[in-house]
Simulated scan of single mutants.
Amino acid sequence: MAEEAPAAAPAKVPAKAPKKKAVRSKTDGPSLPELIVAAVAESKERKGISLAAIKKVLAAKKVDVAKSNKRINTTVTKMVTKGVLTQTKGTGASGSFKLAKTEPKKCCTLKTFN
């Protein structure tokens, strides 16, 4: 019988150093929800402002609407679920929106006695 040479062990590959993530600097100025609230607040429409009109106002305030379209839509829907905005027409991110009226907090409760 012919003896076979033992198989050579695979060469160890040095572990790669993890890639460093690019550090994004915070942009100066108000955040997207603050800009949306300001756009809705300055609207004079009685029935609310549409999403397209909100995007026009944001574009006038130097926000890249084409790049951040998805973020604008999700921010508006989150603001509706949190109660910051109310949706007067439509569903989801489409429709008209206006600022929610805050209910006055009750300072004391009336108790009735039998």
Results as ranks from 00 to 15, higher is better:
K44E: 08
P104C: 04
S43Q: 04
N114L: 13
I49P: 03
T86A: 00
N69S: 15
K106C: 02
S31I: 08
L58M: 06
A66E: 15
L51M: 10
V65M: 04
R46E: 10
V76T: 05
L85R: 02
T86G: 00
T112V: 15
G90Q: 05
A38L: 10
T91C: 01
G29S: 07
K98G: 01
K106N: 08
G95M: 07
A38T: 13
K67V: 12
G48F: 12
K26V: 13
T109L: 12
A100G: 00
I49K: 03
K105L: 08
L99Y: 05
R46T: 11
P30M: 07
K106G: 04
E45H: 10
K111P: 01
K26N: 04
T27G: 05
K111I: 13
S94L: 14
F97W: 04
K106V: 14
K78Y: 11
L85M: 01
L32D: 03
C108D: 00
P30T: 05
I72V: 15
T109H: 13
S94D: 13
T112P: 09
T74I: 11
K101Y: 08
A60G: 05
K78F: 11
T112S: 12
I72F: 13
T81S: 12
T77A: 12
S96L: 11
V80C: 02
K82G: 02
A52G: 14
N114S: 11
T109I: 13
G48S: 07
L99S: 01
N73L: 09
K89Y: 12
E42M: 09
L35Q: 08
I36P: 00
V76S: 02
T88R: 04
K56P: 00
T91W: 09
K82H: 09
K89G: 01
T86W: 00
S96D: 06
G95V: 06
K56L: 11
R24T: 14
T91E: 13
A52T: 09
L58F: 14
G83L: 03
T81Q: 10
L32V: 05
C107Y: 11
G90T: 05
N69K: 15
A53V: 06
L35E: 05
K101F: 09
G83V: 03
G48W: 11
I54W: 12
G83A: 02
S43G: 03
G90S: 03
N73F: 10
S50P: 00
L35F: 09
T74C: 03
K26P: 01
C108H: 08
T91A: 11
A59Y: 11
F113K: 02
T109Y: 12
N73A: 15
V84M: 01
F113Q: 00
D28S: 14
F97D: 00
S25M: 10
I36H: 03
T112M: 14
T86N: 00
V37P: 02
G83E: 02
K56F: 10
T77D: 07
G95S: 05
K105Y: 06
A60F: 12
K98D: 03
L99W: 05
T75W: 15
K105E: 06
T88C: 02
V57F: 13
T75Y: 14
L51N: 04
M79L: 05
A41T: 13
G92T: 06
